[in-house]
């Protein structure tokens, strides 16, 4: 973590709102992009991003620097997302998934970006596995760190990531 950021965190923890806002602004893109991949639903990613920022502000004093600030934000964001999932039924989730994928496809079209079937497959991987998969293979966290983020033992994190990858491959095969 840079000294500049560390200073900003200290200031924010002592109630400096401007430093706090600046800190969140710096990490906004990272947080949103993480949530976009974790949820595969732009609207939901946006909502959870807002919730996360508010929650991080509330818990600011309990941030102790034992993990990087962005890892800390990701941890909170992941918990909030999982909480939301819990309150949802299977059908609801399915409908949301379809909507999310439709809007992502549409975004790809308007941006002239080439569509990739792997995203379709990824959206069909169940959420806990998808998160573990992303944290491991996209973000490069260790299983211990993933366990801390998800609040699960290291072994569970490992099996989730492995299972997620397996699921992803099966979904991709089905697309072919």
């Amino acid at each position: 973590m840079s000294d500049e950021e560390l200073g900003m965190i200290r200031q924010a923890q002592h109630g400096d709102r401007l430093a706090l806002a600046q800190l969140f602004q710096n990490h906004y893109s990272f947080l949103y992009k993480y949530l976009l991949k974790a949820t595969m639903d732009p609207q939901l990613a946006e909502d959870v991003t807002q919730d996360t920022i508010v929650r991080c502000m509330e818990k600011m004093t309990s941030y102790n620097g034992s993990s990087s600030f962005s890892s800390w934000m990701i941890t909170i964001a992941t918990r909030l997302y999982i909480d939301r999932l819990r309150r949802r039924s299977r059908e609801e989730e399915w409908i949301r998934r379809e909507q999310g994928m439709r809007s992502i496809r549409w975004q790809f079209e308007t941006k002239g970006e080439e569509w990739s079937d792997v995203l379709d497959a990824l959206s069909r991987v169940s959420s806990p596995q998808r998160i573990a998969l992303l944290l491991k293979h996209y973000y490069g966290y260790s299983y211990g760190e993933i366990g801390k983020i998800l609040g699960i033992p290291e072994g569970t994190a490992k099996s989730r990531a492995a299972y997620g990858l397996k699921q992803l491959r099966e979904e991709m095969k089905m697309d072919d």
């Binding site: 969140f24 602004q25 710096n26 906004y28 893109s29 949103y32 992009k33 976009l36 991949k37 732009p42 946006e46 992502i104 975004q107 790809f108 941006k111 970006e113 080439e114 990739s116 792997v118 995203l119 990824l122 992303l134 293979h137 996209y138 992803l168 991709m172």
Partner: peptide
């Protein structure tokens, strides 16, 4: 393939990911 797809997803949402 997954990593490439995710990079593309990031690119497509660059504007949305811009901080307020």
């Amino acid at each position: 393939e997954l990593l490439a797809g995710l990079e593309r997803l990031d690119r497509a949402y660059d504007d949305e990911a811009g901080p307020p």
